[in-house]
Deep mutational scan, measured.
Amino acid sequence: DWEDIVRFLRKLFELGEEVVIGDWHNHHREEIKRLIEWLEKHF
């Protein structure tokens, strides 16, 4: 279910905002944000 995936990604992203998950999070933050925005537009 796409909504569950979007919710999971958003939760992960919000957690990442508070607890910076090292370089991985910083590197992928923009991609995650773009992916969430893309999914919201399409689903």
Results as ranks from 00 to 15, higher is better:
Glu3Ile: 08
Trp24Gly: 07
Val19Ser: 10
Arg34Lys: 11
Glu14Asn: 04
Glu18Cys: 03
His25Tyr: 14
Leu15Val: 09
His42Leu: 12
Leu9Arg: 00
Arg7Ala: 09
Val19Ile: 11
Val6Arg: 06
His28Ile: 15
Arg29Ile: 15
Phe43Tyr: 06
Ile21Asn: 11
Lys33Ala: 06
Phe8Ile: 10
Glu40Ala: 14
Glu30Leu: 07
Ile21Glu: 12
Leu35Arg: 01
His27Asn: 13
His28Tyr: 15
Asp1His: 09
Val6His: 12
Glu14Cys: 11
Asp4Tyr: 14
Leu12Pro: 00
Ile36Ser: 01
Lys41Thr: 13
Glu18Pro: 07
Val6Gly: 03
Arg7Phe: 15
Ile21His: 14
Glu18Gln: 14
Asp23Tyr: 09
His25Lys: 08
Trp38Gly: 01
Trp38Leu: 05
Lys11Trp: 15
Phe13Pro: 00
Arg10Lys: 12
His25Trp: 15
Trp38Gln: 02
Val20Asn: 09
His28Ser: 05
Leu12Ser: 01
Arg29Trp: 11
Ile36Val: 13
Val20Pro: 08
Ile5Asn: 00
Leu9Asp: 00
His42Asn: 05
Arg10Glu: 05
Phe13Gly: 01
Leu12Met: 02
Glu40Arg: 10
Leu35His: 01
Leu9Ser: 00
Trp2Lys: 01
Phe13Lys: 02
Phe13Met: 06
Glu31Lys: 11
Leu15Phe: 08
His42Asp: 02
Asn26Tyr: 04
Asp1Ala: 07
Glu17Ser: 11
Leu9His: 00
Glu17Gln: 11
Lys41Ser: 12
Arg7Met: 02
Gly22Leu: 05
Asp23Gln: 03
Ile32Met: 03
Ile32Gly: 01
His28Cys: 10
Leu12Lys: 01
Glu40Gly: 06
Ile36Trp: 09
Ile5Glu: 00
Lys33Val: 07
Glu30Lys: 04
Arg7Pro: 01
Glu17His: 10
Ile5Tyr: 03
Lys11Asn: 05
His42Ala: 06
Arg29His: 14
Arg7Leu: 03
Leu39Trp: 09
Glu3Asp: 12
Lys33Met: 11
Arg7Val: 03
Glu31Val: 13
Val20Tyr: 09
Lys41Glu: 08
Lys41Phe: 11
Val19Leu: 10
Glu18Met: 14
Trp2Phe: 03
Leu9Met: 01
His28Asp: 09
Glu17Arg: 10
Asp4Met: 13
Phe43Lys: 04
Leu39Lys: 00
Gly22Tyr: 02
Trp24His: 09
Arg34Phe: 08
Glu40Met: 14
Val6Asp: 03
Arg34Asn: 11
Ile5His: 00
Asp23Asn: 08
Phe13Trp: 11
Leu35Cys: 09
His25Pro: 12
Ile32Ser: 01
Lys41Ile: 06
Glu14Phe: 06
His27Ile: 12
Glu14Gly: 12
Leu39Tyr: 07
Asp4Ala: 13
Ile21Gln: 10
Phe13Asp: 00
His27Glu: 09
Glu3Thr: 10
Ile5Ala: 02
Lys41Leu: 12
Glu31His: 09
Asp1Glu: 05
Leu15Thr: 03
Glu37Lys: 05
Arg10His: 11
Trp38Cys: 07
Phe8Gly: 02
Lys41Asn: 04
Arg7Asp: 08
Ile36Phe: 13
Val19Thr: 11
Lys11Thr: 08
Glu30Ala: 08
Glu14Lys: 05
Glu17Asp: 06
His27Thr: 08
Leu15Lys: 03
Glu18Ser: 14
Trp2Tyr: 03
Val20Met: 12
Lys33Glu: 08
His27Tyr: 08
Gly16Thr: 12
Phe13Ala: 03
Lys41Val: 12
Phe43Gln: 04
Arg34His: 08
His25Cys: 15
